[in-house]
Design a protein around this nucleic acid. Structure first.
Length: 643
RNA sequence: GCCUGAGUAGCUCAGCGGUAGAGCAGCCGCCUUGUAAGCGGCAGGUCGGGGGUUCGAAUCCCUUCUCAGGCUCCA
C-alpha cells in the first residue's frame, strides 16, 4: 500500500482513490479548510489530485508564497471568465500570477477602458458567487487544437506542448489551457481582489506581434491584506519623486525645452552638486582621477568602438559639419579610451582610473520616458579602469568598496548582485567566444574573491562584456538597479589601447567599466523616494531656516543666518509676511531639517530655539553649540533623513 | 515606437453643447505674532497647440505636443 510522508516525518497510508483533500482532512479539519492546493514530491497539485503513488506530501495554504500564487492565478481565470462573458468572442492568451497580483493578456472583442474595470469586477464577483467547481482535465494535442480552433494564440501555445502534458481547467462554461493547479472552486479563496489598470502588451513580448489588452489586478487571501496592499500603494504614491520634486522645488520639465530633459531648480541643483561631490570625494580617496570629455563626439569613434552598430537607434541623429558627423555623446568609454591613447603606457602606469560626471544624451523612445528615472539627458558617475588581467580582481574589489560605502551612506543596506551574462542565442553581442569566456571568468573570480553571492542571468550583458549589477532595495522594498561593474576584453582591442609589459612587448589592457549611483538623475529619484523628501542634513539643499517670532526680530534672524552661512551651512531666513505659525508650517512641509525660532529671549541671549524636523520638542541652544552639532551631523553623513 | 487614458489660473481640482469656477500660492492693505494655516481686498486662464462639426465648443470629431500606466528597449 502507498504511503505519503508529511513534512514532520509522519507517514500516512493511502487508501486507493484517496485524494489530496482527503489526506488534508485526515491531518486536521482546520488545515483542510485552509488548504488551497497540495504539494506532492515537490510539485504543486490540485486538492482533487489522486495520491495513489504516495510520496512527500504537504498542504499548501494561502499564507504561503505558493498558495498565494495559486490564488492569484485562479483570480486571473475568474477575470478571464468575466471578460469572456462581457465581451463574447474575445481570445485569451496568457494570464500568469505576478508579484502582488496577476494579469491576463486578451485579444478583446471590442474595447476595454479603465471605466469598464468596475463592471468586470462586478462580473467576477458573480463568478465567485456561483462557486463553480474548478476541474482539471487532461486532453490530447488534437483535442486541444480543436478547442482552440478560433484562437491562434492558444494554438501556438499548444504547439509547444507534448501530447500527454496538456491540461485544461474548466469552471462552468469557462475553460482555459493551463498547467494549474487551481483553487477547488471559484467560491473558495477568491474575493479579495481589485482590478488595477489596462495596458497594451505585445503577444509574446515582441513588438512585431499584435498588441493585446492586458488587464492588471491584485489579489490577496483576505480583504485585510488587500487593504494593506492598497494602502502601501498610496504611501508609495505620496513619495513619488515627481510629486516631491515639484513640492520641494527640485526640478521640472518643459515641452519648450524637450521631453526627457530635466531642468533643475536651485534646490535640485544643490542636491545634484552634493550627491556628485560626495561620490567624487570617495573616488578621489580610492585613487580615481577625474576627467572631462565634452558633449560632442565625432561619429567615427563610435563606428570603431562598435557602439554605432549596436545603439544607433538610441542615439540622437548626427550633426553634420562638412565631411564630419558629430553625435551627442551617449556613453563615455570611447572618449576615455581616446584619452588613454594620448600617452604611451607602461605596465608600471597601470591601473589608469578615469572617472567623469558626464552628461550623456540618449534618444530614449518617447513612450518610455518617466520622471527622472528615464530621461534623455542623464549624468553618469562613470569610470573606466585600464589594468592588466592580473589586476582585475584588485580593481574590482576597489570598485566594490566604493559602491558599498556609497550605498551604505544612502541607507541602501539590502542589495543583491545580478551577474548579467550574454544570451548565446542572441546576435546582439560581439562574437568573440574566447574573450567572453575570459571576461566572465574574471568577473566570477572577482565576485568569489570578494565573497559576494550573485545570480547569473542570461541576456542582460552589455554588447562587449558581462556585468555585475547591484540591485538595491529602498525603504518601501522596491528594487532598483543602481551600481554596475563590467569587465571588457573587447573594446580596448578595437580602439587600439596598449601598454608595454614587463616583457617589453605590447599588450592590450583590460577595461573595467563601473558606475556607483548609476546616473545622478535616476539616483536622485530613488533617494527622493527613499527619504520621502526628508533628506539627511548633509544632503539637504536648505539645512536650516531662521524664523523670527515678530518682525522686530528680523535683524537678529539675519545675524544668525549670516553666522551659520559663514560657517559653511546652507541657511535661509523666512522674512515673508506670514505669521510665525504659518512659517513653521510651510518650512516643515518643505522638510527643512532644522527650524530656528528667534524672539526676544533668543535675541537677548544669543541663542536659537531649535525645532528638529519631525519633532515638536523645542530647545534653546547657544548659536555656536548648535553649529557644532550641525557640523558633527553633517560629517557623520548619517542616512537618517527620513522621519 | 506601440496600446489605454489624461491635459482647465503658479499648484490641487470642479465644470463635460448655452456668457470660464473654488481653495492654496501671488500682489495690496490691516495685524506684530512664541512652535503646523490671523483678517480683508485685488489680480490672474486665447480651458496644451492646430483644424473641423455646430447658431453656439473647455465640453463632440480629427490631428499634433506633453504627461501617466503598461509593452518593447536600456551602452
Amino acid at each position: 500500500m502507498a504511503t505519503v510522508r508529511l513534512p514532520d516525518g509522519r507517514e500516512l497510508a493511502i487508501e486507493p482513490g484517496e485524494r489530496a483533500r482527503d489526506v488534508a482532512e485526515r491531518i486536521g479539519k482546520r488545515l483542510a479548510r485552509d488548504a488551497v492546493v497540495a504539494k506532492l514530491d515537490g510539485e504543486l497539485v490540485d486538492l482533487d489530485a489522486p495520491l495513489d503513488g504516495g510520496g512527500e506530501f504537504e498542504v499548501v495554504t494561502g499564507d504561503s508564497a505558493e498558495g498565494l500564487e495559486v490564488i492569484r492565478h485562479s483570480t486571473a481565470h475568474a477575470m478571464a471568465q468575466a471578460i469572456l462573458e462581457l465581451y463574447p468572442g474575445s481570445k485569451l492568451t496568457i494570464g500568469p500570477p505576478i508579484e502582488n497580483g496577476f494579469y491576463y493578456d486578451i485579444e478583446v472583442a471590442g474595447r476595454i477602458t479603465d471605466d469598464d474595470l468596475p463592471r468586470i469586477e462586478e462580473r467576477m464577483r458573480e463568478v465567485v458567487q456561483r462557486d463553480l467547481p474548478i476541474r482539471r482535465e487532461e486532453v490530447s494535442k488534437a483535442e486541444a487544437e480543436r478547442l482552440y480552433e478560433d484562437n491562434p494564440y492558444k494554438r501556438e501555445l499548444v504547439e509547444g506542448l507534448e501530447d500527454g502534458e496538456i491540461t485544461v481547467y474548466r469552471q462552468g462554461e469557462f475553460f482555459d489551457l493551463c498547467r494549474g493547479p487551481h483553487v477547488p472552486s471559484t467560491g473558495s479563496f477568491l474575493g479579495a481582489f481589485k482590478l488595477q489598470n489596462i495596458a497594451g502588451a505585445y503577444w509574446r513580448g515582441d513588438e512585431k506581434n499584435p498588441m493585446l489588452t492586458r488587464v492588471y489586478g491584485t489579489a490577496w487571501p483576505t480583504e485585510k491584506e488587500l487593504k494593506a496592499y492598497l494602502r502601501r500603494l498610496e504611501e508609495a504614491k505620496a513619495r513619488d519623486h515627481r510629486k516631491i520634486g515639484k513640492d520641494l522645488g527640485l526640478f521640472t520639465f518643459s515641452p519648450d525645452v524637450g521631453a526627457g530633459i530635466p531642468l533643475f531648480l536651485p534646490k535640485g541643483e544643490a542636491l545634484r552638486h552634493l550627491m556628485e561631490g560626495y561620490v567624487r570625494e570617495v573616488q578621489t580617496r580610492h585613487g580615481y582621477d577625474h576627467v572631462w570629455t565634452g558633449n560632442l563626439v565625432n561619429e567615427g569613434l563610435y563606428e570603431k568602438s562598435g557602439h554605432l552598430e549596436h545603439y544607433r537607434d538610441a542615439m540622437f541623429p548626427p550633426m553634420v559639419d562638412g565631411a564630419s558627423r558629430y553625435r551627442l555623446k551617449p556613453m563615455n568609454c570611447p572618449s576615455h579610451m581616446t584619452l588613454y591613447n594620448t600617452e604611451a603606457h607602461s605596465y608600471r602606469d597601470l591601473p589608469v582610473r578615469y572617472a567623469e560626471f558626464a552628461t550623456l544624451y540618449r534618444y530614449e523612445k518617447s513612450g518610455e520616458l518617466t520622471g527622472l528615472t528615464r530621461v534623455r539627458a542623464l549624468t553618469q558617475d562613470d569610470a573606466h579602469v585600464f589594468c592588466t588581467e592580473d589586476q582585475v580582481q584588485e580593481e574590482f574589489a576597489r570598485a566594490l568598496e566604493i559602491i558599498r560605502e556609497v550605498l551604505d551612506t544612502y541607507g541602501f543596506e539590502d542589495y543583491r548582485v545580478r551577474l548579467s551574462l550574454r544570451d548565446e542565442e542572441s546576435n546582439k553581442y560581439v562574437a568573440d567566444d574566447e574573450r567572453w569566456a575570459r571576461a566572465e571568468g574574471a568577473l566570477r573570480d572577482a565576485l568569489d574573491a570578494a565573497e559576494i553571492a550573485y545570480e547569473p542571468v542570461a541576456g542582460e550583458a552589455a554588447f562587449y562584456g558581462p556585468k555585475a549589477d547591484f540591485m538595491a532595495k529602498d525603504v518601501l522594498g522596491r528594487e532598483w538597479q543602481l551600481s554596475t561593474i563590467q569587465v571588457d576584453f573587447i573594446q580596448p582591442a578595437r580602439l587600439g589601447c596598449e601598454y608595454i609589459g614587463e616583457d617589453g612587448e605590447k599588450h592590450t589592457p583590460v577595461l573595467l567599466h563601473r558606475a556607483v549611483t548609476g546616473t545622478t538623475e535616476r539616483f536622485m529619484a530613488v533617494i527622493i523616494e527613499q527619504f520621502g523628501g526628508a533628506f539627511p542634513l548633509w544632503l539637504s539643499p536648505v539645512q536650516a531656516v531662521v524664523i523670527p517670532v515678530a518682525d522686530r526680530h528680523l535683524d537678529y534672524a539675519r545675524d544668525v543666518q549670516k553666522k551659520l552661512a559663514g560657517w559653511g551651512f546652507r541657511v535661509a531666513v523666512d522674512d515673508s509676511s506670514n505669521s510665525m505659525q504659518k512659517k513653521i508650517r510651510e518650512n516643515a512641509r518643505q522638510k527643512v531639517p532644522y527650524l530656528l525660532i528667534v524672539g526676544d529671549a533668543e535675541a537677548g541671549e544669543g541663542t536659537v530655539n531649535v525645532r528638529k524636523r519631525g519633532e515638536k520638542a523645542q530647545e534653546a541652544v547657544g548659536l555656536e553649540e548648535f553649529a557644532g552639532r550641525m557640523r558633527a551631523e553633517v560629517d557623520a553623513r548619517g542616512a537618517n533623513g527620513q522621519e
